[in-house]
């Protein structure tokens, strides 16, 4: 084992993993984290804690992850390169590890233009691939990025994101390969709505043997309404929502229920794809949907 991560143990044991997402509050209210955690507890193997997603100021992902550790849940702290240079990143990694956070998802981060401080200065001292390598070098070589030795190294089960739906499409699997080479032990993908494209992407992934080198968790999400489906299709960069799904949402008498059903359908098809080790459910601000999705798709039996 590379880390103390329970997620790593489960995946290595061949268990089809389920992870979910928990967005920390825009406040210092730890009760919100506890409430959301209670909804997810027992249904998922690990919980991603987002790092000021869409560049909106929220409670620190590491602090929130630490709260989860105390609640007995397994957090995956997300870390972006947008807000910290390599000094702050490595410092936070030491701290996160000391607080018992064992999983880390390395991201470039959304540009601050979309957030609530669009006038801020961004950092991007490292990019996600350089961050992955930094985390891996700290763990495996006990070295800081500058080359200095670390006496007690942070030991993370290292994750990366992959977006099969962004461009250039033919490069996307190779880019994931680069992330694995840099240090990713597991991958969480962008939300899958377009299964055909995802299947095509997975073919290249398998040809490159990447499914053997890292655990791939496919991203899924329940949609609340036809409006949301259209919004994601048109306004969210790197998202691919086929028209059939929008049509299904438009026709539905109970859109929320239909959204969950679509999500379950997709999970069931993902389970059949060779090389998929689990799913990552991104029910943003709709944590209540997760238990239902997990039960309906029989992910916990």
């Amino acid at each position: 084992m590379k880390s103390e991560s329970r997620l790593e143990k489960l995946l290595n044991a061949g268990h089809f993993a389920v992870t979910a997402e928990l967005g920390p509050p825009k406040s210092s209210d730890s009760n919100i984290i506890k409430q959301k955690a209670n909804i997810l507890k027992g249904y998922v193997d690990a919980v991603n804690i987002t790092d000021c997603q869409t560049a909106i100021v929220r409670m620190s992902s590491i602090a929130a992850a630490s709260i989860l550790v105390h609640l007995g849940l397994e957090p995956i702290a997300q870390m972006t390169c947008r807000d910290r240079n390599r000094i702050a990143i490595q410092s936070d990694l030491l701290g996160a590890s000391a607080l018992g956070v064992n999983n880390l998802l390395c991201l470039t981060g959304d540009h601050q233009k979309f957030g609530n401080h669009p006038e801020s200065k961004n950092v991007f001292d490292l990019d996600s691939i350089q961050l992955l390598k930094t985390v891996k070098d700290m763990r495996d070589d006990k070295k800081f990025q500058c080359g200095e030795e670390i006496t007690v190294e942070p030991r993370f089960f290292i994750g990366a994101a992959a977006n099969p739906f962004a461009d250039p499409f033919e490069y996307r699997a190779f880019r994931m390969g680069k992330k694995i080479k840099a240090g990713a032990d597991f991958i969480q993908t962008q939300i899958v709505f377009n299964l055909d494209k995802f299947v095509k992407w997975m073919e290249t992934v398998r040809e490159l043997g990447l499914d053997k080198k890292a655990f791939i968790l496919a991203g899924v999400a329940p949609i609340k309404s036809a409006w949301m489906a259209k919004y994601m299709k048109n306004k969210v960069a790197g998202m691919d929502v086929p028209d059939e799904i929008i049509a299904r949402m438009e026709k539905a008498a109970n859109p929320k229920e239909e959204g969950i059903n679509i999500c379950v359908d997709i999970i069931n098809q993902l389970k059949e794809i060779k090389g998929i080790s689990g799913v990552h459910i991104m029910a943003v601000e709709w944590e209540e949907a997760v238990p239902e999705i997990v039960e309906k798709s029989r992910l916990k039996e």
Partner: peptide, 11 residues
Amino acid sequence: KNLLNGPCGGS
């Protein structure tokens, strides 16, 4: 984002 390792997921 002055990336050096290829396009991010927003391309």
